[in-house]
Simulated assay, not measured.
Amino acid sequence: MEDFVVLQEQFLENISCEQRYLINVIDWSNRLIGIKGARGAGKTTLLLQCIKYKLDEKAEALYVSLDSLYFLENTLISLAKDFVLQGGTHLFLDEVHKYPNWSRELKLIYDQFPKLKTVFTSSSILEIYKGESDLSRRVVTYHLKELSFREFLYFEKNVVLPKVGFSELLANHKEIARKVKIETDTVIKYFRDYLKYGAYPYYLENKESYLQKLNQTITLILEVDLNAVENVTYQDSRKIKKLLLAIAQSAPFTPNIKKLSERLGVQRAFLINALRLLNRADLVMELYKPTKGIGAFTKPEKLYLNNSNLVYALDNKNAEIGTLRETFFANQMKHIHEIHLAEKGDFLIDRTYTFEIGGKGKTSKQIQGVKNSFVIRDDMEVGSLNVVPLYLFGFLY
């Protein structure tokens, strides 16, 4: 355990003070907290920042990554027991999906050590409630999204702007946009930068090599995380990567399951499951119309890459601006609002609000007569009436 303590102190000395939105959303008083999110979203940093900035002086915390060689000969439950005996109060466990018996042992920790607070992170692929032990009555889960445009402005320009509620944004978008314009001066320029490299915090390490690192991250998700969580073989992960590239080359992608199955040499059931895994891994977004049920073998009606940075990373030469706009909007809604394909327009949010996405020339013709409908327009700083600037949807979290 001493090695973990030494390593933790080294991490804390170098941890960034720039905090993600979720650190102030999580109720850290819960006894068992699970934080899911895409690889590279900043889950490890979030744990360390909680230790450094959120715990009081009396707390005794320990950060442990479960891919450590320590766990080849030691169990998680034995570590927790030793930690509690030494006065430990807060246990932070990173990457639980790398530990075979994570669900059972987390349940034992929760039941045996009622004074110990435990926080764990996992790949977004992991379905926490389907673990072999029932954690549903014990764990409180949160999903860490990629950087919002609001957070990107803070990281990039040190501009501190508040997050905006969805209803408030629709009702007061002109006033909100004017404030953003005053603070940023060239907001459209920063928005263009965000679309290309602002989704994951590690872009700060080196912008020039960012897309290369993002491609490496995608490979790790497909070849390492899928195997750890779903026992996907290396051969199958290669097939899934071919599927991801096919989606990237023609997103928004309307899947033809028969043709895809023939092209990739796989069965329909494998293909549908692969799409589900890519969606859970936060690599793609599956979208359906609200009238269509979503069953185990139901194909999505449209597929987008999960964020605009992935568009640049996987198909940089053909990053079409219309696709980037729609991808950005859908991404900002994913995990925080219910999103469907609209009968008229592009997207239906919370089964109530219809949105048509476009550039300067986009009109409301396609959504004329539709209640609660809005035109979301790129390349504008301040909107009017039901015309809202696209970048403002990056202020929802």
Score class of each variant (00 low, 15 high):
residue 179 K to L: 14
residue 195 L to C: 02
residue 191 F to A: 06
residue 170 L to P: 02
residue 152 F to V: 04
residue 150 R to G: 00
residue 174 K to H: 09
residue 187 V to R: 03
residue 185 D to P: 01
residue 152 F to Y: 14
residue 184 T to E: 04
residue 172 N to Q: 14
residue 180 V to M: 03
residue 163 K to T: 12
residue 160 V to Q: 08
residue 208 E to R: 13
residue 146 E to I: 07
residue 171 A to G: 04
residue 190 Y to G: 00
residue 164 V to M: 06
residue 144 L to P: 03
residue 155 F to K: 06
residue 152 F to T: 01
residue 195 L to E: 00
residue 188 I to P: 00
residue 185 D to I: 11
residue 208 E to V: 13
residue 179 K to N: 14
residue 181 K to C: 04
residue 213 K to T: 13
residue 158 N to A: 15
residue 168 E to R: 08
residue 159 V to L: 05
residue 154 Y to M: 13
residue 164 V to R: 01
residue 168 E to N: 07
residue 159 V to Q: 04
residue 212 Q to T: 15
residue 162 P to N: 07
residue 194 Y to W: 08
residue 193 D to I: 10
residue 199 A to I: 11
residue 163 K to S: 07
residue 200 Y to P: 08
residue 185 D to F: 13
residue 211 L to M: 04
residue 163 K to E: 09
residue 212 Q to A: 14
residue 196 K to E: 15
residue 192 R to H: 12
residue 149 F to L: 04
residue 197 Y to L: 14
residue 184 T to I: 11
residue 174 K to P: 05
residue 171 A to H: 07
residue 164 V to I: 15
residue 198 G to K: 05
residue 152 F to Q: 07
residue 188 I to W: 07
residue 148 S to I: 09
residue 149 F to A: 00
residue 191 F to V: 06
residue 205 E to P: 02
residue 210 Y to D: 02
residue 164 V to F: 08
residue 203 Y to R: 06
residue 209 S to Y: 11
residue 185 D to A: 10
residue 173 H to N: 00
residue 158 N to P: 00
residue 170 L to G: 00
residue 205 E to M: 12
residue 209 S to E: 12
residue 193 D to W: 12
residue 207 K to Y: 13
residue 173 H to C: 05
residue 150 R to H: 03
residue 189 K to M: 09
residue 181 K to M: 11
residue 147 L to A: 01
residue 169 L to T: 05
residue 202 Y to Q: 05
residue 178 R to M: 11
residue 160 V to A: 12
residue 176 I to G: 04
residue 208 E to A: 14
residue 179 K to C: 06
residue 196 K to P: 00
residue 203 Y to T: 05
residue 180 V to H: 03
residue 175 E to S: 13
residue 155 F to Y: 14
residue 204 L to P: 02
residue 165 G to M: 13
residue 175 E to G: 01
residue 159 V to H: 07
residue 194 Y to P: 02
residue 174 K to T: 15
residue 165 G to Y: 10
residue 182 I to Q: 13
residue 148 S to R: 10
residue 155 F to H: 06
residue 145 K to L: 10
residue 199 A to V: 05
residue 198 G to S: 10
residue 176 I to A: 11
residue 209 S to C: 06
residue 143 H to P: 00
residue 207 K to I: 12
residue 162 P to I: 11
residue 167 S to L: 11
residue 191 F to C: 07
residue 208 E to H: 11
residue 170 L to S: 03
residue 154 Y to V: 06
residue 165 G to E: 14
residue 169 L to V: 02
residue 200 Y to S: 12
residue 147 L to T: 02
residue 155 F to M: 10
residue 154 Y to C: 08
residue 149 F to V: 01
residue 146 E to V: 09
residue 184 T to F: 07
residue 175 E to W: 09
residue 204 L to W: 08
residue 179 K to M: 13
residue 175 E to Q: 13
residue 201 P to G: 03
residue 195 L to V: 02
residue 206 N to S: 11
residue 212 Q to Y: 15
residue 176 I to L: 14
residue 196 K to H: 10
residue 149 F to E: 01
residue 194 Y to G: 01
residue 203 Y to N: 04
residue 211 L to Q: 12
residue 188 I to Y: 04
residue 157 K to N: 10
residue 200 Y to V: 10
